[in-house]
Design a protein around this nucleic acid. Structure first.
Length: 381
DNA sequence: AACCGTTCCAACCGCACGCCC
DNA sequence: AGGGCGTGCGGTTGGAACGGT
């Protein structure tokens, strides 16, 4: 199909946005909605191309954006989803409410990719770089099965992400929230695009409101109404998976956000916890899965756990398990050539191949569990 | 203090795709 | 059917911030 240049570049400003520009853009969108992005700059009195305005809005000024450090849970969600979806940042972003694809992409490239690499896990394939262990007997076949399943799930998620985007476009009931701009401004709005209205900071300078919740503490998922489409019997639980992400509750107030989270990663890894993780999944987690008809039989007990209860409990079990798995090799520890295989099981530290295999299996287990739980947990389902 | 290398992220660029005429 | 338009998406980059020497 034809492609037109994004805009007439002559005379248009590029580079960082100034507070004044932000203000103009916000004021216009709050009053009129964005409408046609191409037409917006002229109407809003901005010397920018529409694309730049759209980006500034979607990645920064939009009120329903959570900024600040990623929580441990968010990190893990990103890693798990990346294992399934690859660099489909927008699809991943649909699972992380209030995070933009750009932010997730940046975070992946600057933090998570390196961390996985450090662990000896290929950030592209999410397999151990030393893949010899997987190349034998039925394991490669299992990997192929998983890969096939991931592709299938990926396609499904993509379609569903589209649906959610469409439904979001139709939805216009946003609650009050705050967002920050680069200049440190805080903007406080109550409506957007038919629903948003500026909350009367009449002086033209959007005010700093000290008592606003910090960006990382404003995430409450009741704010985002489930899309009208694709309701599930578990609709009310749709947010379960993310409920603890960035809430003002324990994790945030306890400072368990990224930097501290990294410490967490370091502190959690040991074989006992790995075992607890496995047991925890067996005992505590139940899934309603769109994949439940697919049997994935991995050697060594790789079986999808599922009950018929329809109840979903995704909590710290999987988080900690995944954390343990990754953190055995994270942080300050220098990795030898055998990378994750050296002592992934923490306390055991025997570097046996079977441990590596077990850990890799658990790594993928955790990912599979995420997939299993996603359809009924994520905001879009 | 000055310099230099690294990290991080906001913003840009170009392609792809869907919709409409 | 095919072309134009609008927008979404993912890759890349520029420069500020930071840390080390």
């Amino acid at each position: 199909m034809g492609r037109s240049p994004c805009c007439d570049k002559v005379g248009l400003k590029k580079g960082p946005w100034t507070p004044e520009e932000d203000q103009k853009l916000l004021a216009y969108i709050e009053e009129h909605g964005h409408g046609s992005w191409r037409a917006l700059p002229v109407k809003a009195g901005l010397q920018r191309c529409g694309k730049s305005c759209r980006l500034r809005w979607t990645n920064y000024l939009r009120p329903d954006i959570k900024r600040g450090k990623f929580s441990l849970q968010e990190e893990q969600t990103i890693i798990q989803l990346h294992a399934l979806l690859g660099n489909r940042w927008s699809a991943i972003a649909t699972h992380l409410p209030k995070r933009t694809d750009n932010e997730i992409k940046n975070y992946w490239n600057t933090h998570l990719k390196k961390r996985l690499a450090k662990l000896g896990i290929d950030p592209v394939t999410h397999k151990p770089k030393n893949d010899a262990l997987l190349s034998t007997d039925g394991q490669s076949k299992n990997a192929a099965n998983l890969s096939h399943m991931a592709q299938w799930e990926s396609a499904r998620l993509e379609a569903e992400a589209r649906l959610v985007r469409e439904s979001k476009l139709r939805s216009h009931s946003y609650p009050p929230s705050a967002s920050t701009s680069t200049s440190g401004q805080l903007v406080n709005k109550t409506a957007w695009n038919g629903g948003w209205k500026k909350s009367s900071e009449g002086n033209g300078v959007l005010s700093t409101v000290n008592d606003l919740e910090s960006p990382t503490s404003t995430l409450t998922f009741s704010e985002t109404a489930p899309p009208p489409v694709m309701s599930t019997p578990l609709g009310a639980n749709a947010m379960t998976m993310f409920e603890f992400v960035g809430t003002s509750g324990s994790s945030h107030e306890a400072g368990i956000i990224k930097e501290e989270g990294e410490q967490d990663w370091k502190g959690l890894g040991n074989s006992t916890q790995l075992q607890e993780y496995k047991e925890g999944i067996d005992n505590s987690m139940s899934f309603t899965s769109t994949l439940h008809d697919m049997t994935l039989s991995m050697e060594g007990g790789w079986t999808p756990e599922r009950t018929n209860s329809g109840q979903v409990h995704v909590g710290n079990v999987i988080e900690e398990g995944f954390t343990s798995l990754l953190l055995n090799d994270s942080g300050d520890r220098s990795l030898s050539d055998n990378g994750c295989e050296s002592d992934n099981s923490g306390g055991t530290a025997n570097g046996s191949g079977s441990d590596s295999y077990e850990d890799n299996k658990n790594y993928w287990n955790s990912i599979l569990h995420l997939v299993n739980s996603s359809p009924s947990h994520s905001p879009m389902f």
